[in-house]
């Protein structure tokens, strides 16, 4: 025992205090720098709400142009079927952001075709139930999944009234830059969010539908009264699927 001073070592205290200050500075500084050094604040704005109007009369039986375009746009076609998996299981497990559905009215026998995808609800049940907040709605009404915080619990898939969500059941070897995808997270139609953020005004499915001459899909800003979609919605009656749930969907259908 060489040190027997009862007095507190002031130098030591001072040193500790300074170290703490320095440590705080190094921890906080990057955050401060971030707030000053970042780019524009232009992003999704709540002044717009993206939506879609689908005219089922124009949707052709057997045509899958929108589905194929979606698969290509979002790199879904880059996924490989696990070796030896049967068609039925592959169809049940592969991601399907948009799917074609053919319906017949039980009473009248009327046939209708339509594409079914995430309906981009104003009050999305998937967002309500997500434990981590990974499922969220952007300011412009697009409902999507933040893969960084998705834990893969699939509660959103239980809650979605439209079966719009897909879980990634396998390793994914290749993705597109704009559409990250990996095993163990949930994903769904995001209205081609990368295109929209880049200033485009159409989605891949709409382009494909127009290219084939059907023009069944109309995409646009629901809040802008001058937009084509807002005018069309005002002019003719349209349906929300499962309107009884009062989710105020962003995707609407005519003639079903």
């Amino acid at each position: 025992m060489s040190c027997n001073s009862d007095q507190p070592d002031m130098n030591r205290r001072e040193f500790l205090g300074k170290s703490v200050l320095a440590a705080t500075a190094t921890v906080v500084a990057p955050g401060v720098m971030l707030t000053v050094a970042n780019a524009s604040e232009e992003g999704a704005s709540s002044a717009v709400r993206w939506g879609m109007l689908i005219d089922t009369n124009k949707c052709a039986d057997g045509c899958t142009a929108c589905v194929d375009a979606c698969n290509k746009e979002n790199g879904i076609d880059l996924m490989q079927r696990p070796a030896g998996q049967a068609d039925e299981m592959w169809n049940a497990q592969r991601p399907q952001w948009v799917r074609k559905v053919k319906l017949r009215d039980k009473q009248t026998g009327e046939i209708s075709n339509l594409p079914m995808m995430c309906q981009h609800c104003e009050h999305p049940p998937c967002v309500d139930v997500c434990p981590t907040g990974a499922s969220f709605k952007r300011a412009d009404g697009i409902v999507m999944v933040d893969r960084h915080t998705c834990i893969g619990c699939r509660y959103c898939m239980m809650a979605c009234p439209y079966k719009a969500r897909s879980f990634i059941h396998q390793d994914v070897a290749e993705q597109l830059t704009g559409t990250p995808r990996g095993k163990g997270c949930v994903e769904s139609c995001n209205l081609c969010v990368g295109r929209i953020d880049a200033g485009n005004s159409t989605t891949a499915c709409q382009d494909a539908c127009n290219k084939d001459g059907h023009q069944a899909i109309l995409f646009g800003d629901l809040k802008n009264p001058e937009s084509a979609i807002a005018k069309a919605l005002k002019a003719e009656s349209s349906h929300q699927i499962r309107a009884d749930l009062e989710l105020n969907t962003g995707v609407r259908y005519t003639n079903i």
């Binding site: 955050g31 970042n38 780019a39 232009e42 992003g43 952007r138 412009d140 990368g194 929209i196 953020d197």
Partner: peptide, 15 residues
């Protein structure tokens, strides 16, 4: 930081 800006807010021109 910027991934949250991009994913959540749609800000794509982050540094």
């Amino acid at each position: 930081h910027d991934r949250n800006m991009t994913v959540r807010k749609g800000i794509r021109d982050t540094q």
